[in-house]
Write a protein that binds this DNA or RNA. Structure first.
Lengths: 148, 148
DNA sequence: TAAATAGAAGACTATTTTATCTTTTATTAT
DNA sequence: ATAATAAAAGATAAAATAGTCTTCTATTTA
């Protein structure tokens, strides 16, 4: 569905949101470790998110990545848009260039219904909203069961 | 969502179903041309589908690919399973190894609901059922609007 | 049974995506 | 100012996916 880069991006921004809520600015290595992702790759992705204004960063000692506490809540969709582009939700799953209500592929109608709902929920769910759920152990950002 | 190979596979089998309904056995070049896909690649994919028993083929003059008219209807899901594997419908969209109702990723519940629906409809829709819709111009297997 | 046709199989190439490494620039604290 | 820290940027490498080419085998028709 999404690229690896996009998967890491969503998880990374959520981790940053958690830390930001406590006034902390994690570096890319810490972030990568905590979301189970390769660190130089996460670094690259974070650079892109900074350029696009999704997150902020500071160089130097005590530097790192953060979300402005007063900033607008960030819909998960915004992250997806920056990394994979908004087309991920509209490209034909059977690869047709033209696939619409007017010229549908064989599964267009089924897929559309599914995807529109998912899109809507990613537009309505904000990174900041999910921080609480993570704190309460209701949802997870990294692999569970790695008992060692 | 699906790999290119899987996209071509679904479109190819549907084209074969149309021709088979008329007792014809198209070759891989004709199939590739009619679904707008690269022909040697389509050839490979068809071989795989033959090995897995989704479609049949005959070599030699008048040979080609076909579906047994008396055979069981083929759910779209069967094609997906052979090419991409059934995991495409259960892998975590944020890339977590463990993502379940018990240990959900931040968007697990939303994704699950909609993916289950899509899965269900691909299990219930059979290639043969869609042939009629294609004949009637209700749905399409190749790109439209290529006006030249 | 020979020639033509068409799929099967395997090796190979290209492209894209994912991941890494190195150098540079900015910031902070001493 | 200088040293240390940490991100930015660019170049490179590895892996996965997509696509191509060549040779081989089976079938049909004359």
């Amino acid at each position: 569905m999404f690229s690896k880069a996009c998967e890491y991006a969503v998880r990374a921004v959520m981790y940053i949101a958690i830390k930001s809520a406590n006034g902390l600015k994690p570096g890319f290595k810490e972030i990568a470790r905590e979301i189970d992702a390769p660190d130089p790759f996460v670094g690259k992705i974070l650079q892109q998110l900074v350029r696009e204004g999704i997150i902020s960063s500071n160089k130097g000692p005590n530097g790192g990545f953060y979300l402005h506490p007063e900033g607008k809540p960030v819909p998960l969709m915004d992250i997806v848009k920056v990394i994979d582009g908004k087309e991920v939700f509209s490209l034909c799953v059977l690869g047709l260039k033209e696939c619409s209500d007017k010229f549908p592929c064989p599964i267009h109608h089924d897929v559309k219904a599914f995807r529109d709902k998912l899109k809507e929920s990613m537009q309505n769910q904000h990174v900041q909203d999910l921080v609480k759920d993570i704190g309460e152990g209701k949802i997870f950002l990294k692999n569970q069961k790695l008992s060692n």
